[in-house]
Simulated scan of single mutants.
Amino acid sequence: MNLLLVRQLLQQALIEDIGHRDLTSELMFEPGEQIGGALLAKQAGRVAGLLVAEETFRLLDPQVRFEAHVQDGADVQKGDVLATVTGSARAILSAERVALNLLQRMSGIATTTRDVCRKVEDLPVRIADTRKTVPGLRIFDKYAVTVGGGVNHRFGLYDAVMIKDNHIAAAGSLTAAVTKIKSRIGHLVKIEVETDTLEQVKEAVAAGADVILLDNMSPAMLTEAVQIVNGRAITEASGGITPETVRDFAATGVDIISLGWLTHSVRAMDISLDLNGKNHP
């Protein structure tokens, strides 16, 4: 992750939560008072976001002592200590909610991604995310997917061409859309085309698409589409795929399976900050 961007996003999150001041912490603690505590896993899962949590505390107290007991990507059990933090009482308690919100969400995404990847780990397919992320959190969400063993799709509209149904409708045809864009981009930019019929798959191959998105196809139809492509483009399956059916889709021979629910329907991992009093050593 780009640390400069991480800090910028964390600053906005802290400003949103603290506003003018943390009234409770300022009334309870003097500026020099210190506390310490531990970040505890309240359930089993895969950890992601410890650096983000550390940077959150450090923005309010540059002298905070943050010691990670595990690394991102570790699989932990309920009761495991993820990290300890010691520093200004005002800073730690003011940063607590933002740090936990992001750590819990990122660890939830990493855990879900890990579980899906394990279902298909013996098959030559990769699990990818989508752009279905909470605005402002994409850098955190997509990082968490990689910690879980998945790969990132495009980060935004700026880093790859993806021709979808509305683009095709506006251009008049799939071929016309691909041809026009090919004439305007550099040689390092890939073109992905969304298809939902086998005829469109054939057209996308003929037009020279680099990646073909096979949208909302059944496993049987997907198998046929992969055979049509026959290695001439990367194939990606998306739409209507659940944790229960992901293996059926992976068995079709598709190269990539992209899953929006890795990030848009995440269940946060339960993690808490348990304090152990002032002047923690």
Results as ranks from 00 to 15, higher is better:
A53P: 03
P135L: 09
R138C: 03
C117D: 05
D255I: 01
V76G: 12
R184D: 11
L50W: 07
R154T: 03
V189W: 04
V47T: 08
A99K: 12
V85G: 06
T130Y: 10
L9W: 02
S218Q: 08
G253W: 03
P243S: 06
V125P: 12
V98L: 13
N152G: 11
L51Q: 09
D141I: 10
E192F: 02
T223Q: 14
T242P: 07
A207K: 04
Q227W: 00
T56A: 13
G260I: 12
V189L: 14
Q71Y: 06
I168Y: 06
L273G: 05
P219L: 10
A13Y: 05
L10E: 02
T242H: 10
H187W: 10
S265M: 01
E192R: 02
E244Y: 05
S94E: 12
T111H: 01
N279T: 05
M162S: 06
R97A: 03
D75P: 00
A110K: 03
T179S: 15
K278G: 08
M106L: 02
I185T: 09
P243N: 10
A171N: 06
R21M: 10
S272K: 05
R114G: 11
G260W: 11
S265G: 03
G49D: 09
T86N: 13
D215Q: 05
V85R: 06
G19T: 08
V85Q: 03
I15T: 15
G239T: 03
V151K: 13
Q12I: 03
I181P: 05
E16D: 15
H153P: 04
R247P: 06
G253E: 00
K132L: 11
L9T: 12
S88M: 09
S238P: 08
T112F: 12
L3V: 15
F29V: 01
L102A: 00
I35D: 06
Q8L: 11
L39M: 09
S25T: 15
L23M: 10
L273T: 08
V211H: 06
D72P: 09
G150L: 13
R232L: 03
K190F: 01
A53L: 06
A83I: 05
D115N: 15
L123V: 11
A144K: 00
L51G: 02
R184I: 00
E26Y: 05
L188R: 15
G253H: 03
D274P: 01
N152L: 10
